[in-house]
Computed example of a mutant assay.
Amino acid sequence: MFYWFLKLVAIGPLLRLVFRPRTEGLEHVPTQGPAVLASNHLSYADWLFMPAAVPRRVSFVAKAEYFTGPGLKGWLQKSFFSGAGQIPIDRSGVDAAEGALRSAKSVLARGELFGIYPEGTRSHDGRLYRGKIGVARLALETGVPVIPVAVVGTDQVAPPGKKFGRVTRPVVRFGEPLDFSRYEGMGGDRYILRSVTDQIMYEIMKLSGQEYVDEYAAKVKAAESEADKRPGPPDPGAAPDRKAS
């Protein structure tokens, strides 16, 4: 009930009033039955605008810290994320991917929609990065269709690393469902998983118009962060450091 309260009363109408988001290709989202919505990830606002565009409930996995905070603040945060369709997952352990996969399968087994960001993290520069194969495993092991999704403009509403953005009109664009039933029983083949994932990312790229980078976003961000920490070259115009004799 809280999910629908947020969607239909508290948050959904406010998003439509302030930002007037556009939705394209909604006819590709089934009105009933399970499906995976695989989206690009530009901003933390994505999980507000994309589900708001769909008449059905959309569930995601979220880090467990959102559900384990102490005191009143922790309770309010847990209530909000649970009510907003988020499923807790501990991402700190080696079994994090398996836990996310189990949670996703339980959602799909109930005939619902499951949302996933194959990049695994937000894009820090607006480009589309290589997808992780979890989305392919989910598609092949459940047999449900994958619907590619592109959100455009949310990185201006809520830019990564900044507190405030600007009011713009985001677009949520849904592509035609992708059927991978021809790969039934081949979910253990890593080459098939990579091929399926790349096909999904290609469809997302066509919908979003983003430049594609065939590297994982987390790896690129880590490399850039490490480079920023290195000391730069000396300033040629700076006065020499003369030590007192």
Results as ranks from 00 to 15, higher is better:
Asp228Thr: 11
Gly83Asp: 05
Gly83Pro: 03
Ser181Phe: 04
Lys63Asn: 07
Phe81Arg: 12
Asp235Trp: 03
Ile116Glu: 04
Ser59Asn: 14
Ser82Gly: 11
Asp214Gln: 10
Val152Lys: 00
Pro236Met: 05
Leu193Pro: 00
Ser106Gln: 15
Ser106Trp: 11
Gly93Asp: 02
Ser106Lys: 15
Glu184Val: 11
Gly85Pro: 05
Tyr202Ser: 14
Ser59Phe: 14
Asp241Val: 09
Asp90Ile: 12
Val107Glu: 04
Lys162Tyr: 11
Val220Gly: 01
Lys221Cys: 02
Lys243Leu: 12
Gly126Phe: 01
Ser82Met: 08
Gly99Trp: 03
Ala52Pro: 02
Gly33Ile: 10
Arg173Pro: 00
Lys63Arg: 13
Ala84Tyr: 15
Gly71Gln: 12
Ala244Thr: 12
Leu42Arg: 04
Asp90His: 05
Pro148Val: 07
Val94Tyr: 02
Lys7Thr: 13
Met50Trp: 03
Ser208Gln: 10
Arg194Pro: 00
Ala139Asp: 03
Pro233Lys: 13
Asp241Arg: 15
Glu176Pro: 06
Met186His: 10
Arg173Leu: 00
Glu215Lys: 15
Thr68Asp: 12
Ser82Leu: 14
Lys105Ala: 08
Glu184Trp: 09
Leu17Ser: 11
Pro148Asp: 14
Gly188Asp: 09
Pro177Asn: 07
Ala150Phe: 00
Gly83Thr: 03
Glu65Lys: 09
Gly12Met: 11
Val58Cys: 11
Pro233Tyr: 08
Lys221Met: 14
Phe164Ala: 14
Val61Cys: 15
Lys221Ser: 14
Ile192Lys: 00
Ala96Glu: 01
Ser245Ala: 15
Leu140Gly: 04
Pro118His: 09
Met186Val: 05
Ile147Tyr: 02
Ala100Gly: 15
Ser43Glu: 01
Tyr216Leu: 12
Ser106Val: 13
Glu203Val: 00
Arg102Cys: 04
Gln156Phe: 04
Gln199Asp: 05
Ala104Phe: 06
Ala158Ser: 13
Val167Thr: 03
Phe49Asp: 01
Gln77Tyr: 03
Val151His: 07
Gly12Val: 10
Val9Ser: 03
Lys7Val: 09
Asp241Gln: 13
Ala53Pro: 04
Val146Asn: 08
Asp189Thr: 00
Tyr117Asn: 05
Ile89Val: 15
Gly74Lys: 11
Gln86Thr: 02
Ser43Ala: 06
Leu26Ile: 15
Arg56Glu: 07
Arg166Asn: 05
Arg127Phe: 12
Ala244Pro: 05
Gly93Ala: 13
Val196Thr: 00
Ile11Phe: 07
Val36Ser: 04
Lys73Leu: 09
Val9Cys: 11
Asp214Lys: 08
Phe67Gly: 09
Tyr117Arg: 04
Gly161Asp: 05
Tyr66His: 15
Leu193Asn: 00
Val149Leu: 05
Arg194Glu: 09
Tyr117Trp: 09
Phe5Val: 12
Asn40Lys: 07
Val149Thr: 09
Pro13Tyr: 07
Ala38Phe: 01
Ala64Phe: 07
Pro70Cys: 07
Asp125Phe: 13
Glu224Cys: 06
Ile116Gly: 02
Ile133Ser: 14
Pro177Val: 07
Leu48Lys: 02
Asp46Glu: 03
Asp125Glu: 08
Ala38Asp: 13
Arg190Asp: 06
Gln86Gly: 05
Trp47Arg: 01
Tyr216Val: 01
Glu98Trp: 12
Phe67Val: 05
Val151Tyr: 02
